[in-house]
Design a protein around this nucleic acid. Sequence first.
DNA 1: ACAAGAAGGCACAAATTTGTTACTACCGAT
DNA 2: ATCGGTAGTAACAAATTTGTGCCTTCTTGT
Lengths: 125, 125
Amino acid sequence: MSDFKSDQYGPCTLTVKQACPIELAMHIMGGKWKGIILSLLSKSPMYYNAMRREIPGITQRILTLQLRDMEKDGLIEREETKDNPKRVLYYLTELGESFIPILKSLEKWGNAYISKQEEGIKESQ
Amino acid sequence: MSDFKSDQYGPCTLTVKQACPIELAMHIMGGKWKGIILSLLSKSPMYYNAMRREIPGITQRILTLQLRDMEKDGLIEREETKDNPKRVLYYLTELGESFIPILKSLEKWGNAYISKQEEGIKESQ
DNA sequence: ACAAGAAGGCACAAATTTGTTACTACCGAT
DNA sequence: ATCGGTAGTAACAAATTTGTGCCTTCTTGT
C-alpha cells in the first residue's frame, strides 16, 4: 500500500537486500480484495457500483479504500464521466496490467495447492 | 496461512469464483517475512539461527511463527538433526519450490515499480 | 563453574487491516 | 414527493498480524 515502511535496520539492509522488492510487491498487492479487483479490471474498465456488484461481500467503504490505495500505488486510474449523474470509471494503468501475468501464476499455484490438499484428504480415508 | 477462511458468502461464491485461488495464494505467501524466508531457503536448506542472522530485524518469536505457518501450509519442512546439541534444519518442499518462479517475478515487478518511482521523482524536479 | 550458542516458549502490547452501520448529495423516473 | 441508483464519507469496532522482553533447556568450550 501507499505507506510501505522499511527502516534502515529492516530486512532491506545487508544480507537480504535483494529480497526487498518482493516485500514491496507483496505489500502493494496483498490487500484482501486487490487480486479480485485487478482480475476484474483486467477484463474491462468498470464503474464503481458494477465492481461492487461483482464482489459479493465487500462493503462500499472497503472497496473505496482498496481503490484509493491502488490509485496511489499507480495500479489503476479513476475517471469521472461528464454525464449526469456522474459516474466513476476505474481502469488499469500499464503498471497494473504488468501485474496480470503474475496474478495468473498465482491463480495457477493456488489451484495446484487446492488439488494437492484434496489429494491429501482422499489418501487419509 | 493455515487458517484461511472463506465463508459461503465471501468472494469465493458467484461471479468471482475464479479469483479465489489468488486470494488463497496471497494469503499463504503474504506474511511479512515469508518471501524472504522462501528466497533464503531457495538457495540452500538452513538452520534456524542461521536464518535469524540472515534476516536482520526479525525476532525469534516471529521467525518461529512464520516457519510454523509455512510448515503447516506445506511450503517447508523441519528436521531435527541427531547431533547434540540438536539443531533444526529447514528446507523447501516441492510445493515451496514451485513458488520460487513466482517469487522471482514478484522481485522483478517490485524492481520495476521502484525504478518507475525514481523516474517520477526525477521528472518532478 | 560459567558463559554462550542452539531452538524455542510465554505474556503482553502495538500496529495494521478489515468490517459495521449509518449518513450525504446528486439526479432521473413514476 | 418519494424511490432508487450513482459514488461516496464518517464514526466506530473487531480481527489479524507483527513486535517486545524475558525465560527455558540442552550442551559444548574454557
